[in-house]
Design a binder for these strands. Sequence first.
DNA 1: GCACTTCATGTTTTT
DNA 2: CATGAAGTGC
Length: 794
Amino acid sequence: MTSFDDAAAPVPLSARAMAARPAPYLDGLNPAQRRAVETLDGPVLMLAGAGTGKTRALTARIAHLLGTGRARPNEILAVTFTNKAAREMKTRVGGFLGEAVEGMPWMGTFHSIGVKLLRRHAELVGLQPGFTILDTDDQIRLMKQLIVAENIDEKRWPARLLAGIIDNWKNRAWRPDTLPASEADAFDARGPALYAAYQERLRTLNACDFGDLLLHCVTIFQSHPEVLEKYQRWFRYILVDEYQDTNVAQYLWLRLLAAGHRNICCVGDDDQSIYGWRGAEVGNILRFERDFPGAEVIRLEQNYRSTPHILAAAGGVIAANRDRLGKELWTDAEDGEKVRLIGHWDGEDEARWVGEEIEALARGSRGLDPVGLDQIAILVRASHQMRAFEDRFLTIGLPYRVIGGPRFYERLEIRDAMAYFRLAVSPADDLAFERIVNTPRRGLGDKAQQKIQRTAREAGVPLTDGARRLLAAGGLGGKGATELRRLLDAIDRWHAQIAGPAASGDALIEPVDGSGPTLNHIELAERILDESGYTAMWQADKTPEAPGRLENLKELVKALEEFENLQGFLEHVALIMDNESEDATEKVTLMTLHGAKGLEFPAVFLPGWEDGLFPSQRTMDESGLKGLEEERRLAYVGITRAERLCTVSFAANRRVYGQWQSQLPSRFVDELPPAHVEVLTAPGLHGGAAAQAMGASDLEHRVARADVYNSPGWRRMQARAARHPSPPPSETVIEARALPDFTEGDRVFHKKFGYGRAASIDGDKVFVEFEKTGPRHIVARFLTPADRVDDVPF
DNA sequence: GCACTTCATGTTTTT
DNA sequence: CATGAAGTGC
C-alpha cells in the first residue's frame, strides 16, 4: 500500500524551514497569480487564459500549501488530464521541492488516480484488485462478441459505434441501472440491456474500461459513505487542471471528494474547451460558482506569450461566442506583426506558399529575425490536411515532424506481444488469450476457438482453463490439440516464473543460464516472445514490414528496462499511450489544433480556414450552434498558440474525397478584427490568371470589407515583398521536369515511402515497388538513387 | 486458412 | 481518391 496508509509518516519537507525563509516560489508572480496562489481555503476558480502562466501559479500554489504546512505532500490531490501535463507539473513542483515530489503520490491523471483508488476498493464494485484495464481496441473486440451473442445486426450497429455510445453514457456517469428514460430507446431499445450485458462481461473478465476507472470510483463514493469520508479527510486540498475538459463523471468524482472541506481549486479556461465531442462539459466550469457557493474567482489575464495583435485577433474571434465567463487577455509586449491572412487557389498552392514562407522565415528574409524550424508549427483542423504539407515539404526537402501519428503501443505487433505478457501475468485474461491463441498460426481456427469458448462458458471458467478441459475431454484432435497443449504449458511456465522473482522482492538477480525463477522480467519477456513462436513468425514473414515489426518488438523489450516487473509495465502501458520520441534535428511541427493545446510556437500557420472544413461541417450538422462555438474556440486556441507571427490561410478550391470543391473562406476569417490583420496576396495570384479563375470576387470581397488594400499594413507588406522577393516557384517546376538519374531496376529512396525498386520509367514518372509500402507511381524528383541517399539534404 | 476482390466510408483524441 | 473492412473464391 502506498502513502495513504502511512498516515504517521513524518512530513518529508520541513514546513518550518520553508516558512522561515522568504518563499521563493512567490517571486515574480503578478497580483492575480499571487492571489491564486495565496487563496488556499475554500473553492477557487482560476480562470487562466492562454499563456497567462497558469502552470506557474498552480505549482506555486502547491509549494505554498506545503510551505505553510497546510498539507503534507501526500495529502494533496492534483489532477490533470494527460500524462504530459502530469509530468510537467511533477517536474515544476520538483523544482520547488526537490526530491519531495516523490512524496506526492496523488498527483496524476484522472485515470491513474482512479485506478489507484479502485485497486483498493475493487471488491465494492464486484472486481478483484488485480483487474485488467482494457483499451479501446479490447473494448471493441468485446463489444463484437456481445453483438454476436445478442444477435444484433452489425451492419446497422457497428461495434465501434455501440462502444462509443456506452462510453458516452459512462462519461455522463450513467450506469445501466441509472440510465435515464431518454436513453431507453437507444439502438432499437436494446441499449440499456446491452450496456448491462457489457458491464457483466467486464465483471466476469475482471476488467475495466477507461470510463469505469472513474465511474466505479463514483459508484463506490456514492454507495459507501464511510469510504468517501475517509478520502474527503485525507485529501485536504484538491487541485484540478483543465477543468473545462472535465466530463460529468469526473465532475461528480471531484465534487464528492471536495464536499467536506471544499478546498478545491479548479484551473481552466472556458474559451479553450474543445473536447465537447468526447464528453467534456463546458457547463462544469460555467457553473462552478453555483456548485461551490462563495467560490473565489480569479482571472489570469496578463498574457506572457503573444503580441498584442495576436491577442486582439484571437479576442475578436472568441468574442462572437455567447456563454462565456468573460476574460480579456492583455500584454505589455510590443505590437509586433499583425496576423497575416492569405488566400490561395487550392490546397497545393497553400502548401507551396507555406513551404516557401517557412524557408523565407528561416532565412530571415521577411524583415524579421530568422526563425528556427522548430519554432514553427502548422496547425490543421483535421489530420488529412497534413498530407498536402507533407508532400510539399518532402519535395522541397523541408524537415518536418508530424505529431499525433500512429502510436507505438497501438501497433499490431506490440499489442500481440502485450497480450502474451498479459497472459503470463494473469492466465485468466480471456481477451489476451483470444488475441493470440492462433497468432502465430497454431491450427486453431474458428471452430476450435468456438469449442474452447463453449467449454469455458459451460464450466464458468477462463478460456485457458476451458481449453485445458477441452483437451482433457479429447474434444480436439490433430495439430491443433498438440499446439494448444504446448501453448497452455508455456503460459503456465511463464506465469510460474513471474510469481518467482516478484515474490522475492525487487532484488536484482544475476541472470543464470537455464531456467527457474531466476529470470528477470526482461529475459522473461524475451523468452515469452521466443517460446510462443511470435518472434519466429515475423522472422519467417517475408513481407516488407516484418523487419520493422521485429525492430518494434526489440524496442518494446527495451522499454521494459524502466520497470521493475511486467505487471508494472502493463499498468503503465494501459494508461500511458503516448510516445514522444525526440530527435535532435530542427523540424517544422505539423499537428492538429487539438494536439496543439497547451503548446506555443513563435510562428504559427493556420491553413484551411474554409467553411465546411473549419468550422467543420460535420460538427455544425451534429451539434449546431454549440458545435460552431466549439469550433470557434478551436480557432481561438490556434491563434493563441502563436507568440510572434500568426498566419491564417484559406484556399478557393480543395479536393474533398477525390472531388474538387470550391470553398468559401471561413466565417472565422470575417471575425478577425481588421485592425489587427494584414492581408497578403500570394505571389502570382494577385491579378494573375489564378485570381480570375478563383472568382476574384470572394477574395476581393473579404479584402475590400476589411479595406486592407489601403491599410498601412498592406503597403508595408508590399514594400517588404519588393525588398525581399520570395524565391521564384519556377525552380521547383524546372526541377520537376528533370528526368531521373537512375534506370529501371535501380533501388531508389523516397523520404516518405522508403526504399523501393524502380520497376518502370516513363518520362519523369516512375513506377516504384516500395519495399514497405507497396507499389506507387512517383514523380522522379521525389526519388533518390538508393546509393546516394546521403546526398538528400535532410 | 489465405489471398484476392469489392464496397463503403470518410473529424478532432486521451485515458 | 484512398484506405480499411468485409466478403468471395480457391
